[in-house]
Amino acid sequence: MCVLGVCTSWRTVADGEFFCPDCGGDRNYLRRTGHRRLTVLGIPLLSRGAADPVIECSACRGHFGPDVLDHPTTVRLSAMLRDAVHTVTLAVLAAGGTSSRAVRDTAVGTVRAAGFADCSEDQLLTLLAALAADTGALSGTAEALGAGDRRPRGGLDPCGTALAIELHASLEPLTPHLAQAGRESLLFQGARIALADGSYTPAEREVLGTVGAALMLCPADTDRLLVAARTPS
């Protein structure tokens, strides 16, 4: 038996779901605060102050700092990625137009592959009409898929400040959690939509440049990907 030591008594103050780095997946957690005590022959005697709060995995019992909760769960990360693809698709369509059947088909296929399996051409056109009526309407449009809410059509500046803000708002929270390949894939998908009817227009290039910046890709990488997207797969 240890004659002299320090033990920590823990108290659970919250719980929830998080991505456990040790388990490598979504798990339940307990947020715990602790108090340390000096022990003699296993008997707690003198207070040694508060212990740093920890996040304890309910599966592996590992302890992590509170900042582990900054990482989204797998479910949340999937939703963020799905919504990001949807936002990039709308931005590219707003910049390049929807007169081409090839562009519309590529856009619908991209959004469906991202997780919106029921997405249709009509739904995307409806959301673009809403965006044209209100350049701030891009935020939250992913949740409106299938709602069938048509708004009056109006003018839309595809390279305007409002659209750039919406792209940054959608992509920047996701970017730190994606590897370089994942960020490049998002830009590449947008580029393939823009190229479905031919070469990039200046408006499409500007929007794709904004996407690259929001994904923290350097201009050289953005240019490289836009060139690579021209090569048939």
Rank of each mutant, 00 (worst) to 15 (best):
G62F: 00
A91Q: 09
A228C: 03
G198V: 08
D221W: 03
P158Y: 05
G65I: 05
L128K: 07
L46E: 10
A229M: 02
R192K: 14
R192N: 07
A102I: 05
T39L: 07
L30T: 05
I55E: 04
E166P: 04
R153F: 14
E121L: 06
T210R: 05
C60G: 08
T8I: 15
L46C: 12
H177G: 00
A147M: 08
H168N: 05
A220P: 06
H63C: 09
L163G: 02
R11V: 11
R224S: 08
A142I: 04
D26G: 01
A203W: 00
P21M: 13
M1N: 12
G146L: 14
P173E: 04
C60F: 07
C60S: 09
D105N: 13
V111P: 05
S185F: 01
G49V: 13
L225M: 09
T87L: 01
V211P: 02
L163D: 06
G115N: 12
R11T: 13
L38S: 03
R61K: 10
T33E: 15
W10K: 08
L208H: 03
V75M: 03
I55V: 13
P202T: 06
A107M: 05
S185R: 10
A59C: 09
A14V: 00
G160V: 09
S120E: 11
H71G: 06
P53G: 10
R101Q: 12
D67I: 00
T73A: 04
A133V: 02
C119R: 06
Q123E: 15
D52G: 09
I55Y: 06
A214C: 04
A114E: 08
E121K: 04
A220D: 00
L46A: 14
D105F: 10
L125E: 15
E56P: 03
S139R: 13
R153V: 15
S99K: 07
L124I: 08
R37K: 13
C23Y: 03
R101G: 05
G136T: 15
V6Y: 13
T222K: 01
G34P: 08
V6N: 11
A84N: 06
L156E: 07
V92S: 01
A169W: 02
E172Y: 02
S170P: 01
S199P: 02
A147L: 10
R112L: 10
T12P: 00
A114V: 10
D70L: 11
S58I: 04
D26E: 12
E204G: 01
R230Y: 07
